[in-house]
């Protein structure tokens, strides 16, 4: 059995003490795993990823990462936080927050610069990443003037530039066209083959099967209510419907309106 990288034990968290976002979450993520956190809107997916990235801290319960108990005190130790930031990369849900430099190129270089990587090495890295994500033509543009999909790709490039061991991705494919989604999934799978841990939060059932070996489902009670292999969850229509992960689909059949649950696993 692989080494656990992150361990959340009975974690509670609420925003400003009054908006509960996590209510007793238990979660273990092992090194090299590909994991999905799925759930309807507002079930706490983003909150979990923020916590895994050491940006917010458990109100009660505990989170362990890299064999340390993560608290705000630990994260302000310069030595540990540097290692942590180098090892964990986070693609935010909102790319406008993630991209804050004046040009795409500088945004990609920001992470490695802060971590003290050498300049010529950074520049080489930028070229390689830009090629892989097919964003060479965007390098001199201003990030805030890109389309959503382009912004998402640039956000991913920014995180890849740091060469982390763990990728945390918050809805990486939301709002992207099928071909771009495909590209991004392929890149994530390649990274996973190379031994990187991939944690994705999504409600896009199309991609769950591919980008995870195990899926954790967050319920309306803001807890993990089920953890299983994706196929098992994807075939359980009742369960998915109860958790707002499929919708009932109406269309015309032989001139009559006909309703059935629409599983987001295949196109039709």
């Amino acid at each position: 059995m692989a080494k656990p990288l992150f361990e959340l034990k009975d974690v509670y968290f609420s925003y400003m003490g009054k908006f509960p976002a996590l209510c007793g979450v238990n979660l273990t993520i092992e090194e090299g795993a590909k994991v999905c956190v799925i759930g309807a809107n507002g079930t706490g997916k983003s909150t979990i990823l923020n916590m895994l990235d050491g940006l917010i801290f458990a109100g009660s319960g505990s989170m362990k990462a890299f064999d340390r108990n993560i608290t705000s005190g630990v994260m302000s130790e310069p030595g540990f936080s540097r290692v942590f930031r180098k090892s964990v990369g986070f693609v935010f849900q909102n790319p406008d927050a993630q991209l804050f430099c004046p040009s795409v190129k500088e945004d990609i270089m920001f992470g490695p610069l802060q971590l003290g990587v050498q300049l010529d090495k950074i520049k080489k890295g930028v070229d390689i990443i830009a090629n892989r994500l097919k964003i060479n033509n965007l390098l001199n543009r201003q990030p805030h003037q890109l389309s959503i999909g382009e912004k998402k790709k640039v956000s991913i490039a920014c995180v890849m530039a740091v060469e982390p061991d763990v990728f945390l991705l918050d809805e990486p494919t939301a709002g992207l066209d099928p071909a771009t989604t495909r590209d991004i999934i392929d890149i994530l799978l390649e990274e996973n083959m190379a031994g990187k841990t991939i944690v994705t939060a999504t409600h896009d059932m199309h991609i769950v099967g591919e980008i995870s070996d195990i899926a954790h489902v967050l319920g309306r009670n803001k807890k993990i209510i089920r953890s299983a292999v994706p196929d098992e969850i994807l075939l359980d229509c009742e369960f998915l419907k109860d958790n707002n992960l499929v919708h009932v689909h109406r269309h015309m059949h032989d001139g009559r309106i006909h309703a059935h649950p629409h599983l987001h696993t295949e196109h039709h």
């Binding site: 180098k86 935010f92 804050f100 802060q114 920014c158």
Partner: peptide, 22 residues
Amino acid sequence: VMHNRVYEAMLSRGYSGEPKVI
């Protein structure tokens, strides 16, 4: 809210006080 998010995004990418740019 945006201000907070941006700050978190900077932290997440290793920012620690004085930004380094080329």
